[in-house]
Design a protein around this nucleic acid. Structure first.
Length: 731
DNA sequence: ACAGCGTTAGTTTTT
DNA sequence: CTAACGCTGT
C-alpha cells in the first residue's frame, strides 16, 4: 500500500486518498492524470472501501479504457476483467445487452457506426421520396445526433419553422426505422440507457446502490446526456437514491476542451462544481513532461481565455531550449525547412518516432508528406482508414449481421448485390416497395417475394438461409470463414488483381474473431449477476462497431509522426513541429469570428504546445496553396500571444522570402492610380483597413474605378473591397 | 454493371 | 487543386 502511494506529489496524493465524496480534479497536461485515476481505484479497493464490482470507471476512447485496465491490473492482484471500466458507449452497450428486454430491444440488437447511420438515413429519405438536396443526409444525421445528445426525442423536439418541423418528423421516422430493424446508433446507446434508468426506478436504484465510486476521465469532453447519465447513476438525477449515491470523481482540464463541435459542454465542469456542492477543486499543476519554456509559453497563451477554472503548469526540469519560430515563403518552403531540421536531428541520433508534425487540418499533410517522401524519410500519418472501416471487412460483417438479425436492412442493402449477383436497382426498388407495403424488413420482403425459385433474389435468400442453418453450431471464426466462401467474397477478391490485400484483411478478420473469443468473449459473470447477451456473434459485432481498431499502417516502425492537433491530444513527443500557424488556418477562419470559437482554437493551440517534451518548433508560411489558389497569409495571432523572450526566430538562407513580389502581380487598379509608387498595392501586400485591421491582399479583379481587391484579414475573414471606397493604406 | 465524366465542396472526430 | 460523389451513356 505504501508502494501504491509512493512517488505521488502532494496534490496527487490528496486526490488519490480523498475520503468518499464527490470531487473535481483539474489535471493539467502531463500532470499524471491517468496515474491518479488508476491509483485512486487501486487505493479504494485495496483499503477495502469498495469491491471491484462497486467501481464504475468511464473514458471516451477504447485506448484510454484499455490503458486504465492494464495499469490497474499491474497495481492490484485481482482480475479486472469483470469490472465496469470502459467507454461511455461500451458500458451502455453492456448495460443494454443485460437489460435488452426492458429497453425494448432484441438480444441481437446491432450497433450502427456513423457510416451505417448515414446509409440508413439515405435509405429512409429514398423510401419516403424526399429530396436529399433539400434535406442533406449528413445535415439530418447531425440534427438527429445533436438532439439525442441533448436527451431530446423526436416527440419532444421543438420546431420553430416549417423546415425544422419536417426534420423533426424525419427524426421520428428514423427512430421508427431503427426500432423496426433492431439497430441502435451510437448516441442511441447512451440515450436508451439513460431513459431506461430514468423510467425504471428499481433498476436505477439497483445500480445506484451497486456503484459506490464513479470515476470519469476527460470530464471536460462530456456532453449533456453523458453528464445527465452520470448524475443519475450518482443519485443526483431525477431518481433519488435512498442510501447515499455514488461518489463522482471527475478528472478533466477545461483548457484542453477541444470537442465543442461534437457536443462537448465545457460548462459541465462548472455545473458539476455547483450541483454537487464541491467546496474546492484539486489542481494537478506540476508537469512531468515539458521543459519550462514550453510550459511558460503554454501558460501565457491560455491566460488569454476568459472564464477558466484557472491553472498554471510548472516543472522542476529546467527552462530548456527556446521555442524556435520559422517563417517560410511558401508552404513548400516551410515543409522543406522542417524536413531539413528533421534530417539534422536524426543525424544527431534523435529517434524519428519522437518527432511529430502537427497541423490544424488534414489537407496540410500533403505538402509535408511530399517533402518527407522526397528525402526518403519514413513517416506515419495518423487518422487513416481503420481496420473495421475497410470495405471488405464491412461487407463480411454485414453478412454476419444478416445472419444474426435478418431485419437489419442496412446490412441487407449493403450485401444483397455484393459481390454482384444480378440484383440491380430495379429489383431493390421493388423489394423496398414490397417491404414498405407489408411493413416488414427487406429480407422478409425478399423471402416472400422471391417468386420464381430460380431468380437471383431467391438464390440470395437461399444462400443466406443455408449459411445460417449450417453454421449455427460452428465456432465464430469458422462461421466467418464459411461466409466469406459461400457469399462469393473470396472468389470476388481473388479475381480482382488488387484484391490481395483485401483477402489478407479478411483472413485477419477470422483471426480477430478467434482472439476476441479468447480475450473478451468469455461469458461475463460479475458479482451477483450474469450478464446475458445475444451470444458470441452479437458481442463480436458490437465489438467491431464500438472499436474500429487502431490505425494499422506502420505501427511499430521508427517513423516521423504526422497528425492533426486533435489527434495529438494525450500524446507526447520529444520534438514537436506545429505547422501552418497562420491567420485563417490556425486559428481556423470558420472559428475565429466569435470569442467562443477563438477560445476553442486557443485551447487547441495549448494542447499542441503542451505535446512537446524538449523542443518546440512553430512554423508558418507567407503563401499557401489553398483550394487551388495561392493564399497570402498573416502569421497566426497566437504567435503574438507568446512571450517574445521565449522565442527564437530561426530564418536561415533558404527562407528568405522575396519581400517585393514580381511586378506582374501588381493590382490593376492601384497601378492605374499610382503606377510607379513604391507602396503600390500588390498581391501579398499587407494593408490596413479602418474597420477590419491589418490584412494581406490575396487577389484582385477589374480595373480603374471598378477595381476590387480580396483581402485576407485573418480573424476578420477574407473580404472583397472596392478600391474606390475602401481606404487601404500599406501596413 | 461499370467506366467515365462533370459537379461540388473543402475544420477538427470518437464511439 | 483534389477527392468524392452522382449521373449518364454504353
Amino acid at each position: 500500500m505504501s508502494d501504491l502511494l509512493a512517488h505521488l506529489n502532494p496534490p496527487q496524493l490528496a486526490a488519490v486518498t480523498l475520503p468518499p465524496q464527490h470531487a473535481l480534479i483539474l489535471a493539467g497536461a502531463g500532470s499524471g492524470k491517468t496515474r491518479v485515476l488508476t491509483t485512486r481505484i487501486a487505493w479504494l479497493i485495496s483499503t477495502g472501501q469498495v469491491g471491484p464490482q462497486g467501481v464504475l470507471a468511464v473514458t471516451f476512447t477504447n485506448k484510454a479504457a484499455k490503458e486504465m485496465q492494464a495499469r490497474l491490473a499491474a497495481l492490484l492482484p485481482i482480475n479486472t476483467r469483470g469490472m465496469w471500466i470502459g467507454t461511455f458507449h461500451g458500458l451502455c452497450n453492456r448495460f443494454l445487452r443485460a437489460h435488452h428486454r426492458e429497453a425494448g430491444l432484441t438480444a441481437q440488437f446491432q450497433i450502427l457506426d456513423s457510416a451505417d447511420q448515414l446509409a440508413a438515413i439515405k435509405r429512409l429519405l429514398k423510401n419516403l421520396n424526399i429530396d436529399d438536396e433539400k434535406y442533406p443526409p449528413r445535415e439530418l444525421m447531425h440534427f438527429i445526433n445533436a438532439h439525442k445528445e441533448q436527451g431530446i426525442r423526436a416527440a419532444q423536439a421543438e420546431a420553430y419553422d416549417a423546415y425544422t418541423s419536417r426534420r423533426v418528423e424525419l427524426y421520428g421516422e428514423y427512430e421508427g426505422q431503427c426500432q423496426r430493424e433492431g439497430v441502435v446508433d451510437f448516441s442511441e446507446l447512451l440515450l436508451r440507457s439513460y431513459e431506461l434508468l430514468q423510467r425504471n426506478e428499481p433498476l436505477c436504484q439497483h445500480y445506484q446502490a451497486r456503484f459506490r465510486h464513479i470515476l470519469v476521465d476527460e470530464f471536460q469532453d462530456t456532453n449533456r446526456l453523458q453528464y445527465a447519465w452520470l448524475k443519475l447513476l450518482a443519485g443526483r438525477g431525477s431518481v433519488k437514491s435512498e442510501s447515499a449515491g455514488a461518489c463522482l470523481f471527475a478528472v478533466g482540464d477545461d483548457d484542453q476542451s477541444i470537442y465543442a463541435f461534437r457536443g462537448a459542454e465545457i460548462g459541465n465542469m462548472r455545473a458539476l462544481q455547483r450541483e454537487f456542492d464541491l467546496p474546492e477543486v484539486i489542481r494537478l499543476e506540476q508537469n512531468y513532461r515539458s521543459h519550462g519554456n514550453i510550459l511558460d509559453a503554454a501558460n501565457a497563451l491560455i491566460k488569454q481565455n476568459r472564464g477558466r477554472l484557472g491553472k498554471n503548469l510548472w516543472t522542476e526540469a529546467g527552462a530548456g531550449e527556446p521555442i524556435r519560430v520559422f517563417e517560410g515563403y511558401s508552404d513548400i518552403a516551410e515543409a522543406a525547412f522542417i524536413v531539413e531540421e528533421i534530417c539534422e536531428l536524426a543525424g544527431d541520433g534523435v529517434s524519428r518516432q519522437q518527432m511529430a508534425l502537427l497541423y490544424r487540418s488534414n489537407a496540410q499533410s500533403r505538402v509535408l508528406e511530399h517533402q518527407l517522401f522526397k528525402q526518403g524519410l519514413a513517416y506515419r500519418v495518423h487518422g487513416g482508414l481503420r481496420f473495421f472501416d475497410r470495405q471488405e471487412i464491412k461487407h463480411a460483417l454485414a453478412y454476419l449481421r444478416l445472419l444474426a438479425n435478418p431485419d437489419d436492412d442496412t446490412a441487407f442493402a449493403r450485401v444483397v448485390n455484393f459481390p454482384t449477383r444480378g440484383i440491380g436497382g430495379r429489383s431493390i426498388e421493388a423489394l423496398q416497395e414490397a417491404a414498405r407495403q407489408s411493413n416488414c424488413s427487406l429480407y422478409n420482403a425478399a423471402a416472400s417475394l422471391a417468386g420464381k425459385p430460380g431468380g437471383a433474389v431467391a438464390r440470395f435468400i437461399a444462400m443466406i438461409e443455408s449459411l445460417r442453418a449450417e453454421t449455427r453450431d460452428l465456432p465464430l471464426p469458422e462461421v466467418i470463414d464459411q461466409l466469406i466462401e459461400r457469399s462469393g467474397l473470396r472468389q470476388h477478391y481473388l479475381a480482382d488483381k488488387e484484391g490481395q490485400d483485401r483477402l489478407e484483411n479478411l483472413d485477419e478478420l477470422i483471426n480477430a474473431a478467434s482472439s476476441f473469443l479468447k480475450d473478451d468473449g468469455v461469458p461475463l459473470v460479475d458479482g451477483d449477476e450474469v450478464v446475458p447477451d445475444g451470444g458470441p456473434l452479437a458481442s463480436f459485432l458490437a465489438h467491431a462497431s464500438l472499436e474500429a481498431g487502431e490505425h494499422q499502417a506502420g505501427e511499430g516502425q521508427d517513423a516521423i509522426q504526422l497528425m492533426t492537433v486533435h489527434a495529438a491530444k494525450g500524446l507526447e513527443f520529444d520534438i514537436v513541429f506545429i505547422t501552418g500557424l497562420e491567420q485563417g488556418l490556425f486559428p481556423h477562419e470558420n472559428a475565429a469570428q466569435e470569442r467562443e470559437g477563438l477560445e476553442e482554437e486557443r485551447r487547441l493551440m495549448y494542447v499542441a504546445v503542451t505535446r512537446a517534451r524538449k523542443r518546440l518548433y512553430l512554423t508558418h508560411a507567407q503563401t499557401r496553396m489553398l483550394h487551388g489558389q495561392t493564399r497570402y497569409c498573416l502569421p497566426s495571432s497566437f504567435l503574438e500571444e507568446l512571450p517574445v523572450e521565449l522565442l527564437r526566430k530561426i530564418n536561415r538562407g533558404l527562407s528568405s522570402a522575396p519581400l517585393a513580389p514580381p511586378r506582374s502581380t501588381a493590382v490593376a487598379g492601384a497601378a492605374w492610380q499610382q503606377p510607379a509608387a513604391a507602396n503600390a498595392l500588390r498581391i501579398g501586400q499587407n494593408v490596413r483597413h479602418a474597420r477590419f485591421g491589418v490584412g494581406v491582399i490575396v487577389s484582385s479583379e477589374g480595373a480603374g474605378p471598378e477595381a476590387r481587391v480580396q483581402v485576407n484579414f485573418g480573424a476578420g475573414g477574407v473580404k472583397w473591397l472596392a478600391l474606390e471606397y475602401a481606404k487601404l493604406t500599406p501596413a
